[in-house]
Design a protein around this nucleic acid. Sequence first.
DNA 1: TAAAGTGAACTGTACGTTCAGTTCACTTAG
DNA 2: CTAAGTGAACTGAACGTACAGTTCACTTTA
Lengths: 198, 198
Amino acid sequence: MLEQSSHPRSVRAKESVLCATKELLDEGGLGAATVDAISARSGVSKATIYKHWPCRTAIAAEAFGRRMADAIPLPDEGTAIADLTEQVRRVSKFYAGPNGKIFAQLLAASVTDEAAAPYFREFFLDTRRANVAELWNRALARGEVNSAVSAGTATDLLFGPLIFRLMTGHAPLAEQEAEAIATAALHGLLKANSAEDY
Amino acid sequence: MLEQSSHPRSVRAKESVLCATKELLDEGGLGAATVDAISARSGVSKATIYKHWPCRTAIAAEAFGRRMADAIPLPDEGTAIADLTEQVRRVSKFYAGPNGKIFAQLLAASVTDEAAAPYFREFFLDTRRANVAELWNRALARGEVNSAVSAGTATDLLFGPLIFRLMTGHAPLAEQEAEAIATAALHGLLKANSAEDY
DNA sequence: TAAAGTGAACTGTACGTTCAGTTCACTTAG
DNA sequence: CTAAGTGAACTGAACGTACAGTTCACTTTA
């Protein structure tokens, strides 16, 4: 799949490692992606692996991170409400599937593993936050949302609940739940705001 | 501090373990609370420890869990808005301090450690969710909040963002931020709802 | 030939287990 | 009201396992 000679060895080694890691993550989660296993499957020695990444978690974050961006494209449905709700729905669906467990394990590992945190942020958060900021700005331009709320706060409000549920497992992540969360976030918890579309 | 004979040995051993674990957590986080260290400090042997708890994380969850309930009493300020906002503020403050890191490490460990998850839920989530449900029901009784939103969804919306920030460290947890989150959650993200108190 | 990768062995840490021997609280016999 | 007995609980020390990350002499490749 990869022309053997068109890339320098170092690139081929990295690619090979990331590919093997992806497979291992799918087969048995982060626990299965031990450095020895990655080395064995990729054919790249541990010594080389540690020349490219600072720690195990960083490899997994990079291997897995690309997938998430691909799996969750940015919606464009015409209104802020529809776009934001759809995005919450998509992210929730991603979390609810097998990838959700891997994501949770990676986030958990990043808490413990100091060196991995920047990798996690780079490959998971930055892109997604930028995406949501994009949606938010569109909505602001249309005058649909409250300009006193920052894009960051809006992102946290919409997706924090999903992360919370994913990590603790205290509540389900079904589509219906995702919609309830999005609706509540958009309209607010207070009674005055519960006007029409409930 | 503990009458040597008024409790059976097993109770004394448990107490001693939990006390030692609390100290170790404060000194060096979850990483410092190894089973060997707990055993050494408490004077309780590892064999005994593993008769009382299924895994290391469970000990830490129990040792640390009590503290959180004590540190975050239930507010009663007269209105739903004030109560809920104050609760968000208190939890945020707790997360922002040294205890926040320990909490994050525990939550992270519970993701990996299957056996610990129920302990985590028991000692951290259940009490707090019940507390917030209490606030929510008060507010419902007063007709201040939207009855279409369940207490669970409301809880996730208010505290999920804090957890999100705590775990990823992408945004600060200052008092001002907590208020912004609470306000946004209560009033909603849409423009129509941004009426008076912004 | 120099930069990059290999492979295998090694270190260190920590979880969780096991088991022979000891302590303690409580009961029952004298 | 003592003294022997009993079983549950705890001790201590060792052990097996797993895995992260390092080191180094050697080989490959550009």
